[in-house]
């Protein structure tokens, strides 16, 4: 698939050989839509799997679950075909832990993600958070992008997305979203 663009923060490349721990799961968005609590249950499971890497296990589990839940909810909401597998991969590199999601999304959603990540890379997250809250709350809209902004504001998450063309379908794009958290930030909560 052709790479159409990379947006967001510049993430330090990590060598897979340096991973202390890794877990990748694949699931169908339809399962999450049918029973929304599966998003939370999956986030809690993955967080509890990785909490053993941290001294403050309770705090780490809270932070990891918060981040993973937002990403898993986004996979459920923004995947074009709810029956097509999406994936979540968590890798622990010692000082950094990364979450990577992959799915296919429609053009409008990809355009919104690009705009959001571009803005997030250059704007103070606290100001962006308040702006987004006023925008969504006063107009009774969905919390578009608020979860990602909140992860950046509260835990210093760094976010980047790679967007690739899907062969034979100009309206769909393959999105790889990567979120990186400093292990210290996870410990502090």
């Amino acid at each position: 698939m052709d790479l159409l663009g990379q947006v967001g923060d510049t993430l330090t490349p990590q060598d897979p050989a340096d991973r202390l721990s890794n877990l990748r799961i694949e699931l169908l968005p339809i399962d999450l839509i049918v029973q929304w609590r599966r998003c939370s249950k999956m986030a809690d499971f993955l967080a509890s799997y990785f909490e053993y890497h941290f001294e403050s296990r309770v705090v780490a589990a809270q932070v990891l679950s918060t981040g993973l839940n937002e990403l898993i909810e986004n996979l459920a909401k923004f995947s074009a075909d709810k029956q097509r597998p999406v994936s979540v991969e968590i890798s622990h590199f010692g000082e950094v832990i990364t979450f990577e999601t992959q799915n296919e999304a429609r053009r409008a959603e990809v355009a919104a993600l690009r705009a959001r990540l571009t803005r997030m890379a250059t704007t103070d997250p606290e100001e962006l958070f308040l702006e987004q809250l006023e925008h969504t709350a006063s107009r009774d809209r969905a919390a578009s992008g608020l979860g990602l902004i909140n992860l950046k504001k509260d835990y210093g998450a760094r976010l980047s997305a790679e967007i690739r063309a899907v062969p034979d379908d100009p309206e769909r794009f393959h999105v790889t979203l990567q979120l990186a958290l400093e292990v210290d930030a996870v410990e502090r909560g």
Partner: peptide
């Protein structure tokens, strides 16, 4: 309240407003 997702944060902000 152990967890609140981003839709919940929006809902809470509506109450604050």
């Amino acid at each position: 309240l152990q967890f609140l997702n981003s839709s919940g944060i929006t809902a809470l902000s509506r109450l604050v407003m």
